[in-house]
Design a protein around this nucleic acid. Sequence first.
DNA 1: TCTGGGGTCCTAGGACCC
DNA 2: TCTGGGGTCCTAGGACCC
Length: 407
Amino acid sequence: MHIDVNSAFLSWHATYEKQIGIERDIREIPSVIGGNEKSRHGIVLAKSLPAKKFNIKTGESLFEARQKCPNLLIVLPDYNVYTKASKKLREFLKTFTPDVEAFSIDECFIRFTDIDREKAINLAYLIKDRINEIFGYTVNIGVSENKLLAKMAGDFEKPNKCHTCFPDEIKKKLWPLPVEDLFMVGRKTKQKLNKIGIHTIGDLANYDYNAISALFKSHGRLIYDYSWGKDDSEFKGFEQVKSVGNSSTLRFDVTDTETAHIILLSLVEVTAWRLREAGAFCRVISVGIKFSDFFYISRQKKLSFFTDCTNDIYINMCKLFDAIWDKKPIRQLGVYVSDLEFRAVKQINLFQSNFSKKSEVLDKTIDKIRCRYGDNAIIRGMFANSDFQPLLGGYPSDEYIGMSSIL
DNA sequence: TCTGGGGTCCTAGGACCC
DNA sequence: TCTGGGGTCCTAGGACCC
């Protein structure tokens, strides 16, 4: 089964408001969860059903959304609430089966073996209704024999619905849908498929496999298989993360190196912290720059050693950044670490900074203080009298990892 | 004050080796 | 007989997901 929280951020926010005694229900009026426009985070993160009637779309700018619906209510997100709600839901699902696989903050797969169709469907309805009773929000549940079909079924009709998409139902339920509804067919692929006359999932399924394979390579073979409901991906209870990153759109365009370095530090602080929390060391570091014209570049470098040290990562990140930046105004900065290794003991390397040992103790101590007394209990001196946040970043992403094409 | 942030995976080109 | 061919590794960019 695939479980998908309907308008997750908005539903969770509504139940939270109810909990703390706020009278309104943002689900019943045209509303969206949206970022802060003043700090240039102004996009729609989730929309209510009444807002959907105004043709408001997730991901579009709040500016556009307000044009479509002038008295739209815009609510700032509270990622803490969403992260907790997400965890609570998975805990609840674990009362039905230990096989719960988080797919994103608001989606997961649960597995049942040795259960017939009828029982599965009844169970899906039971789970859906229990979630509504206990937590006060609705979900969609898709039921089938593999993850892809369950996920496709979950998307059929929303909200508060259970659907099946078993192999013998593919032609009837899956094939008539527009091809872009298929998992892993995005904007670009839809355009290319439409150009060769493929408009529905059925069109794709009945197109020449070799032609698809030649045109779209491995991605083509993947979506062709998906159009036939073929997916032999394993059920993974838990998977180790492969990269950690942190990026932020800046309140204003940055044009001087000093400011850029301060921001890089605040991004690295959070990234390195998450890396240590995961019990990992990284060997590849990358920096990404989005300019004011939205042009994006990135550079990565493989270090000669594995590290989880804020200072090491920061120093090398600055080197990378300095080597590629041509002083064009920066809108967004991002730092990423990958090529991870998970081990308990740190290996000291000659090429690490001289302060490596001290830095390690320092990192650990800072982590502990922040864990105990809050994120801003201890900050770097360079932030003390500056206008910049000592820790910069989006919402926490632990507990689940990013979506993969092989589910 | 138009356009976020967390990820995974794939491809193509170039460096380098024998 | 102008400039082979197999392989690995690294890097930048772009597609996709929510």
